[in-house]
């Protein structure tokens, strides 16, 4: 049984401790929703899970093996959708996705790109340069990257921002399918995300308290 876990994670940004002693555990098919006020460390935790940010204390493990032992294998099994959309305005939607599909090693990246565009209702915009896209359409294009190549772990930072109801339904469909196939989802959100049976991880519960032995950096 696949399991992704983190133990006693602490996050230090600049001089500020964001959270301390955070522990989580996620099994195949499960979803974890990160909640908490602004600056409680939702994005930082996601970036930590994506190995884009080093934990100040603690560590991540996959199937019991420390992720730090083989970071490349961990990077290969995750898809990260953050606030930055990584979309080139001068390229068309299909070219944008095709490039990432090729980086994932697809033999026919364009076909894979069109399939992903289809799933997020962007098929008619495939040949349109991304600079003409609305914010919501750009966000859908960003989310469509999840479907380019299968990966067991999806890390989503505010995936519903700017999406209309139809797009949220499409995201829900993709998430359900991903989890039914044994995939895991970690999402940070302020709003209700359509993730039935998810477990919530309120980050404000791990806020550092003054006098905490693990507290201030010395």
């Amino acid at each position: 049984m696949t399991e992704f876990a983190g133990s006693h994670l602490s996050c230090l940004r600049g001089e500020r401790l964001v959270f301390v002693g955070l522990t989580f555990r996620l099994a195949a098919g499960e979803a974890l929703v990160l909640t908490g006020p602004n600056a409680s460390g939702k994005s930082s935790l996601l970036r930590m899970m994506a190995l884009l940010l080093r934990p100040w204390r603690g560590g991540l493990s996959w199937d019991g093996a420390p992720v730090a032992d083989d970071p490349d294998a961990h990077r290969a099994r995750l898809r990260y959708v953050g606030h930055l959309d990584a979309i080139k305005p001068m390229l068309t939607a299909e070219e944008n996705l095709g490039f990432w599909a090729a980086l994932h090693g697809h033999a026919r990246p364009e076909r894979q790109a069109r399939r992903a565009l289809d799933r997020f209702g962007l098929e008619r915009l495939a040949a349109v340069p991304a600079r003409y896209f609305s914010a919501g359409q750009k966000h859908r294009l960003n989310l469509a990257r999840l479907l380019l190549a299968p990966a067991p772990l999806w890390l989503l930072d505010e995936p519903t921002v700017g999406l209309d109801h139809a797009a949220i339904a499409r995201l829900e469909e993709a998430l359900t399918e991903h989890r039914a196939g044994g995939g895991m989802v970690v999402a940070a959100t302020h709003t209700d995300l359509p993730l039935p049976g998810n477990r919530a991880l309120p980050l404000d519960a791990f806020a550092p308290t003054p006098g905490d032995p693990d507290g201030r950096p010395s």
Binding site: L52, D72, R75, L78, L84, A86, I87, K88, G105
Partner: peptide, 13 residues
Amino acid sequence: EDGSLELMALGGL
């Protein structure tokens, strides 16, 4: 700036 670099750092190449 647009996040492409961190996605490239996540793998593939």
